[in-house]
Every structure is written in structure tokens, then in C-alpha cells.
Simulated scan of single mutants.
Amino acid sequence: MEGGKIINSEFFDGISDLEDFNLLKFIITSEIRLKLLFSLYGSTKSIKELESEFNRKSANISRGLNELKGCKLITRLPDKRYAISSIGFLLAKNIENLMYDCESIDSKSEFWENHSIKSIPNRFLKELLFFNNSTLVKSTITEFAKPINVYLENIKESTEISMILPVYSKIFMDSINEALINHGGHLDLITTKNIHDLILKSDSDNYFKSLVRDKKINYYMVDDLANIFFTATDTFASLYLFFDDVVFDSSEMLLIEDLSSLSDAYRFYNSYKTYIFK
């Protein structure tokens, strides 16, 4: 069909580099090794300076330094000071990012704990950290449809829309079509064949087909799709998850309206899109 493309994809990454994993485990399972690595991540230091900083005996500091040196994470300079190596710098940076990821997930712990994330590849779970600055929009007794209404209000004002769509809702699609028609916008859509067929079946006025013909919609159908209803636009970004593999939760949504964070949302979408072309 014009405007569409079918992509075979696999969404479950394994650990590809066991050596890197073991090195990371070696560092984070030792308080002294981790502290030494991050101390040298900031600047070069002598053993005396490190002893004073950590209030540890020289033998403990020396053993930790030798272990890091043996892994080529640090090096000893001619003036007997220690400095982080290029490999050590990259590892420390990755550990720093990992800690930030954990902080991000913890800040919205209830949202993540209440939903299934097992279908989301590990690499994309890390990239979702930009939702650390999001607002959690929840249903209430008096406003049961609050997340949906907030989403619809935002999508109707959007022009450039990128979306990962693992669930179908006529309300959502009608609002997206309205935004594209009213604002002359564009939708880049990743979905499954089942969802695509449901869209066509319910689109009695053939808006979807017309928008595809007019190149206002470009869509990609994949065999397997992670259970994330993700939207990135020029006005907001949002994330809905599933309770399990089949039950979509429309009662909670993470919402970003900070314009400075929207570039991260588009970057996440493009990264995900590139991944399914592998």
C-alpha cells in the first residue's frame, strides 16, 4: 500500500558483550573501586590525597588502585600521581548515566512499578530517562478520563507528530486526523498490521487513506512492537504503558510540555525507528 512499509523486527536485546558487563560488575560491587574511579574521574591525585579523601589506610587505597590499573581503567603518571584512562573515563561516564537512569525511574517509581516494561528493549529503557522531568497525569474519581482529555487537548494543537502506536482508539485517531488537516501537519507512525487494519476498518470517511496519499502520513508496520504508546510532537511528548502484555492503561500518562525536552523525545523516536530497520 502507498505510504506504508512492512519491516521484520526483533525487540529483545541480550547482553552482547559479556566482558564489558563483567567489568562493570567488578567496579560497582566494590565501594572502594567505585569511589576511586569517580575520584580520579574528576582529577589526577596522589595516594596521599586519596588516603586523606577517603580516610582509608594506604594498603586499601593501593590495592584498589592496583585493581583499577590492572583493568586499564587508570594509569600512573611519571610524577606518581594517578589519572583515569580513556577506557576508565568512558566506563565512569556510563556508570554516571546508569545512576541517573535509576534516579529517573525511581522518581516516577509508582508509574513504572504499576506497568509492564518487559517488552521494551533495555537500551530504550535507558533512553526514556528524559521523562524524569515529566508530569504524571492520572485519572481521578471526578475526572476519570483526565489523561485522555489532556492528551487530546495537546494533540489537536500539534503539527509534527511522531508516534509508536501498539493500541487502537478511534478517539485518538480522529483527533490526530483533525490536527493534520487543520494545521497541515505530518504524522510519522510506527504500528503493527493489526492496528493498521483496525484504523482502515473504522475510518469510514477515509481520512487516513487520503492523508497517506497526500503524504501527510508516513507509516511503518512491524511484526513486533514494544508495549509503549509514545508520542512526540512540536508541542508535547507523552508515554502510556500497559498493565501486562495485552491490557492497555489509559488511566496514567507521563506528559512533557517543556519545549527544551521535546528534542529528546524526537531523538528517542528516531533511535527506536532506526533500531527496527536493523
Rank of each mutant, 00 (worst) to 15 (best):
F130M: 07
K156F: 00
W112D: 06
V137C: 03
H186N: 07
Y168R: 10
I190E: 06
N177Q: 10
S139I: 06
Y168P: 09
T142D: 15
N149R: 07
T191Q: 07
N194V: 09
I190L: 13
N149F: 03
L136F: 08
E153N: 14
F130E: 09
S158W: 12
W112R: 08
I120L: 15
E143I: 00
A179Q: 02
S119V: 01
I176K: 08
I181R: 09
K138T: 13
N194Q: 12
T135R: 14
I161K: 10
I141T: 09
K138V: 11
F111Y: 15
I161D: 10
K118Y: 09
Y168D: 10
N154L: 08
V150L: 04
L129F: 11
L189E: 02
M173T: 10
I176S: 05
I148W: 10
S158G: 13
L165D: 12
T192M: 05
I190D: 08
L128Y: 02
L128P: 01
L129T: 14
W112L: 09
T192S: 12
T159Q: 13
N132V: 00
E178R: 13
E113C: 10
S158I: 11
N194K: 12
M173S: 08
I181M: 10
L180M: 04
N114D: 09
A179H: 03
K126N: 13
L165Y: 15
S175I: 01
I117C: 08
F131D: 05
I141S: 12
I117Q: 04
F144D: 02
S134D: 01
E127G: 00
K146T: 02
E160P: 00
H186T: 03
S162N: 08
I181C: 04
S158R: 11
E157F: 00
F124E: 05
F111I: 09
S175P: 01
E178T: 12
K193T: 12
I171F: 13
F130H: 07
L136G: 03
G184R: 04
P147S: 04
N132L: 03
P147I: 05
K170I: 14
N194M: 10
S116D: 15
P121V: 05
E157S: 14
I176W: 07
I164S: 12
N182E: 15
E157W: 00
T135M: 11
N132S: 14
F111A: 11
S169G: 09
I161A: 11
Y151F: 15
H115S: 04
F172H: 15
T142Q: 13
R123L: 04
L136R: 10
F124D: 04
K138E: 15
T159Y: 06
N177P: 01
E178L: 14
K146F: 08
I190V: 15
F144P: 00
V167A: 09
K146N: 13
N122C: 06
I155N: 06
H115V: 03
T192F: 03
L189F: 05
A145W: 12
I164D: 12
P166V: 02
P147G: 03
S116G: 05
L152R: 11
N149M: 05
